[in-house]
Structure formats: structure tokens, C-alpha cells
Design a protein around this nucleic acid. Sequence first.
DNA 1: AATGAATGAGCATTCATTCAT
DNA 2: GATGAATGAATGCTCATTCAT
Lengths: 198, 198, 198, 198
Amino acid sequence: MGRPSNRSARRAQILDGFQSALAKHGFEKATISSIASEAGLTSGLIHYHFSSKLEILLELVTTLNERLEARFQSYLAKASTPAECLVAFLDSRLAQGEGADPRAVSCWVTIGTEALRQPEVGEVYRHSMREQQRVLKKLLKDLQVRDERLDSTAAALLAAIEGCYQLAAAVPDIAPPGFAATSVRRMAEGLLNRKLPS
Amino acid sequence: MGRPSNRSARRAQILDGFQSALAKHGFEKATISSIASEAGLTSGLIHYHFSSKLEILLELVTTLNERLEARFQSYLAKASTPAECLVAFLDSRLAQGEGADPRAVSCWVTIGTEALRQPEVGEVYRHSMREQQRVLKKLLKDLQVRDERLDSTAAALLAAIEGCYQLAAAVPDIAPPGFAATSVRRMAEGLLNRKLPS
Amino acid sequence: MGRPSNRSARRAQILDGFQSALAKHGFEKATISSIASEAGLTSGLIHYHFSSKLEILLELVTTLNERLEARFQSYLAKASTPAECLVAFLDSRLAQGEGADPRAVSCWVTIGTEALRQPEVGEVYRHSMREQQRVLKKLLKDLQVRDERLDSTAAALLAAIEGCYQLAAAVPDIAPPGFAATSVRRMAEGLLNRKLPS
Amino acid sequence: MGRPSNRSARRAQILDGFQSALAKHGFEKATISSIASEAGLTSGLIHYHFSSKLEILLELVTTLNERLEARFQSYLAKASTPAECLVAFLDSRLAQGEGADPRAVSCWVTIGTEALRQPEVGEVYRHSMREQQRVLKKLLKDLQVRDERLDSTAAALLAAIEGCYQLAAAVPDIAPPGFAATSVRRMAEGLLNRKLPS
DNA sequence: AATGAATGAGCATTCATTCAT
DNA sequence: GATGAATGAATGCTCATTCAT
């Protein structure tokens, strides 16, 4: 009956190689053969599993989103009050330690820029940001944030998070490691005009 | 005797074409010929005035920094208290209206990603961020921020600004235009634990 | 499994095309596409098998050296006395007939000039000349040449050979074809102050 | 009446810059602007005085030939016997000391290779070699060399000289400096089957 | 005479993608 | 599934030459 399919394992392997190449070289310079070599495969095989470089990028966005969501759920498990839930969201994005992934941060920053050029990347990036905004708005609503402020408050938090990614990737020594989670919590306090649990 | 030099005018013209190409296509795809065509010049001339594409990028960073600094000085002229000075800094980066330049924001986001790959871009980008941090720390010190918090507070504000740039460029309709200045001021209030003038 | 490699055959084919292009146009003007067209291949393929034009040149030097050495060994097989061995060396470099290769001579003259500019070419060219000098010195020593004269005698013979190449390539009708082997043998006699077998 | 013409001085200055550039970079890479910069002039001026790079090269050949001829005449002034005249010829080409010019040697080697490609360079190079052969044949005839050997003997001496140039330029340490004049005299002795004065 | 801007063709090299095996 | 050869378009950069001043 032929050999068993290893399709999904190979695709994961390629995604992993792609992340390394993307973090190191950026999208344009993450050549198929650099991806292959990071993944320990030959270049011809990449196109057997993915029809184009863009398709790999799009799948990576999905993967990264799923990982973030999983991390959020795991933080959420320990939260009970609405304030703790918001902090869980922020921490799932910014806390150091288990689940933190500098390579993924680098990739995400790169994807964010690529979103400016490639319509399809823009689409999935915007979808991701809007989905996060939707989640945040629900959390903020539970914290009694007024409706007309929900959009901009959520957007501001997302901006702060993305900005922390950018700084972490590009100027890592501008502040002590781990400053991001604390600082964004404080910034959230400013936006909400109330204290949040630490 | 001899033909008069138009070097600096041409370089400015090329920089302008480069900004357009960079904002539209990103660094790799901002080809010399696309830069030339945006600038209304021939491609050979680009390399007559700049020795490499990288050199154009580096000069653009300088130019953008100078423009930001000039905008800051103009806002500063209307500020008197330390709190107003801080707001002047934030507004010079984020306010809509005179001096706001969406194309420059797009370029800056792209430069920030390019800083992850090209050492020389990384160097000037980090220099720019550290210089802004230095300025911010002085402003924060005047607002009685404790010394051990200066670094991370300044870094957090820079992160928020960079994040707003990213969102403005990639997901412009995530919040009403102009939300950034207001939101970052509120986030600053959270970091400082005090009100700021609007 | 997988497509069988034709790497070494292709590399040989490219080397052959390179020799033609080099002999006709010189190094700078032996463009990748002229090499490809001499070899009956497409230009992209050249860079699939060689990382740079320089690498092709360096490999050609190796090839030419090996061919000369092989020709020398074949002449040597018929030699018995030390004098005959020396003549075998000279003939392997200069005799017409089997193994003579005007195109290779042209290439070698070009390589000799390229050795003046490109450090890596200079290195392999000098290595080749020194190796030949080493061999010659051994032959000369067997002919009782005094130690303090070995270096300059060997160098003089090499100069005479290289000069014959240059003349053969650039002014072919300055003397009857085949004059070189005889003349250099006579010049060797002057250097050694003794007769050599013809 | 305008300013006085400096045409010939400028041409000489350009020729000098060209020699430096040619010796350093070879013909193809001796760019107009490198010539200009070696000459301390601006690039536009080169084409005011010479219509093309090739024209500069051709003029350089003339200049080098004239210099060699002058050196020969100065050596000849001290010669009386036919043998001394031949030695004067060889020494004018190879002796160290006054009039020796390593840069010119480098240029000549380069010109000799360029002669293989560019018809016009080939023409003047061959003309130069044939003219030298003509002179040599006269000198050899005075030494009683048989007519049927004149061509090849003269060619062999020219080959030895050109080969010494090549080695001096490309492998300078292959033999002690100044070995060339002595060695070529000995080689001439082999060709003539008689002693020559030292 | 002299300067330096401008042109445009040409080059080595890269790379996503296709395809034969 | 897998390999690696092959293609061909694209790109940054170079440079002789021309020309306006």
C-alpha cells in the first residue's frame, strides 16, 4: 500500500526550519535552500510539501497564533477575576519563562513588516490582530471599560505588546529582560485608570 | 569653471524616491530601479550619488531622526512644565496633523525589521533608540521618576510608540486615527502613576 | 532514490567551455553567459556547479597542472639518463604533436597575467611555478648543476617556457612552429654548459 | 589667444596614471576613474585628451618602446664588438639599476595578454616584437649566426626576455633579483654556441 | 580646459520554481 | 517521497562614454 504518509511531520519540520531561517535572515533572504538546510532536508522537498514560500509563511502565522492561544489558556487556568484574566492575556504574550520563544518573537516582528507588503500576509496578520483585539475587548468589558473606549484601549495594549516584541528583538539591552510584562501591566493600569494584580 | 554640483539636491531627491519605494515594497524589493523611477531618475545615477542601497537606507535613518527631533523641538517650544515636556515628546512622535508622515512611519517600521538582519542598520537603529531613551530619561527624571525605573519606563514608552507605528502601518483601521497619542499618554500615566496634561 | 548526480561531468563540461571563453576573451570578458554558451548550457547552471567565476579559474589551473604532469610522466617513460629526463620535462611543456594544446597555452598566458591582480590566482600560479621549479631543480641536480645555481637555472628555464607560450599565443608567426622545444633545449645547454640529447 | 596648450603634458600625466592603474588592476579593471585618480585628475578630463581607453593603451605601447630603445642606445654606446652589442640589447631589457622599471614590466606583461584579445593591441604588440626581432637578427648576423637560424634564435631570445618579465612580475622571489640578465646571457650562449662577454 | 552629472548597457550572482530520475 | 539538476528572470552594481556647464 506504499509507505505511510509523513506529510504532517515533514511540514512541521519545514516550519521549524523556516522559523530559524526567517528569524536569521528575514523573509526575502530566507531562501528555500536555507530553509531546507535549517530543516535538515533538501531544497527540492520543500516544494513537494509547500507550493510556495508564501504558503509556509502563512502556515507559520497560524502555528504562532495557536501557540499564543494555548499559552493564554494555560495562564487563564490560574486566573479568576476579570483583572487576573487581563493580566493572563498580557503575560501570555510577554512573560519570560516557560513558553517564551525569542525566535518566535523575531519571526513575528518580521511577519508584521511583511504584512505591509504582501496582501496575503497582511490579511492573516490583520486577522490575527483583530482576533486578539476581540478577545481583549471582551476582557476589558468585564473590567467595566466604557464601550466607546474598548477599541482604542485594546489597540493600545496590542501596540504596546508589538512594540515590546520589536524592542526585544532589535535592542535587547535597552531594558532588563522581563521588563515588558511589568511595564505593560502598568501601562494597562493607566489605560484603565485602576490597579491590576501582579 | 566646470559644472556646478547638484549633489545634495540629488541625494535628497533620491532619498525621497527611496522612502516611497521602501514604504511600498520593503527594503529587498525596493530595487534600485524602483527607487530611480520613484525619484524620476535613471538607475545609474542612483549609484553615482550613493555607493550602495544600504548607504541610502543609513542616510534615511539620519534624516528621519533629524525630522523627529525638529518636530520635538517645535512641540517643546509650547511646553513649560516637565509634564508638558514629556507630552511634547510623545506628541512629536504620535500626534496627527502637521509633521505627521504616514510614509515615514511605514519606513521606520521597515527599518526596525531590517535592523534585525543588517548589522549596520541595527547599529544606527539602536543608536537612535538609545538616544531617544536618553532624552526620555531626562524628561522622566524631571518628573521625579525613581532612578531604578528610568530605563524600563523610557523603554516601555518607546515600545508603545514603536508598536503604534506598527499598528498604524499594518492595521490602520484597528482604532480611530489619532488614538495613538491619547492612548500612549494614558499609558504613560500608568507608568508614572500620575496625571499628565492633555 | 532521487536523481543521479552528474556533477563531475557537468563541471568538466563547464571547465571546457571556460577554457574556450578564456582563450578567446580573457578572464574579465569571459562572461558567465559566454562560458555557458561555449559549454552549451544555461548561465544559471554555471553557478549551480561553481560558486563563482574565480572558482572555475582556480579549478582550471589544477586541471592544466595535472595534464602537464601527465604529459611529463609519459615523456619520462622514454627517458633514461638525467639529460634525457630534463629534455623530457622541456618537451612535455613545449613539444608539438600529441598533447600539445594551443588553447591551453592561451589560457595559461591569461592566467599568468590574472595572477598579477587576483591574490587567489596569484597563489595557485605561484604554487604551480614553484612546484615546477622544485621538479626542475631535482633534474638539474642530477646533471651536476651546482647548488647555488639551481634556483636561477630552474627559474630561467621556466621563464623561457613561459615566454615561448606568450610568443606562441601572441605572435605565432614570429618563428616556425615547433621552434620552441629546440630553442629552449639549446638555451638549457647554455645554462648547463653541456650538450643535451635531441 | 586663449590659454597656452598643455596638451602634451596632460597626456603624459594621463599615461603615467594609466601605467599605475594598469600595473595595479589590469586593463579591464583600470577604470577611467582609477586612471584619473592615479593621475590626480578628474575623470571627465581623460576623455578630453584621449578618445578611448584603448587609445591610451596604444600610446603607452609607443612610449614603452621608445624608452626601451633609448635604454638600448645608451647601453650600445659602451659596446664595441658584435658580442657586446648583443649583450647591450639583452641588458637594456633585463638589467637592474638605472632605467629598470618594475611598473613598466607589469604593464608590458598585461599588454602582452591584452594582445591576445584586442586586435589593435595585438597589432602594436606584434609590431613591437617584430621590430625587436629585426634588431636582434641584425645583431645575430654580425655574430655569424646562420641565416636559417636567425628567426628562431631571435624569437627564442625574445621569448626568454618576455618570460623573465612574466616571472619577475608574478613570482618575484623565484630567483634572486637580477638573475634574469645573467641567465639570459647564458641562454644566448647556448643558442649561439659561443661565449659572450659579461 | 576642466568638472562632474548623467546614461545605459553589461555583468556576476541569487533564487523560486520546475522537473527528470 | 525524495533528490538534485536545470531554468530564467531579476537585482545590485560597474563603467566607458557623453554632455551640460
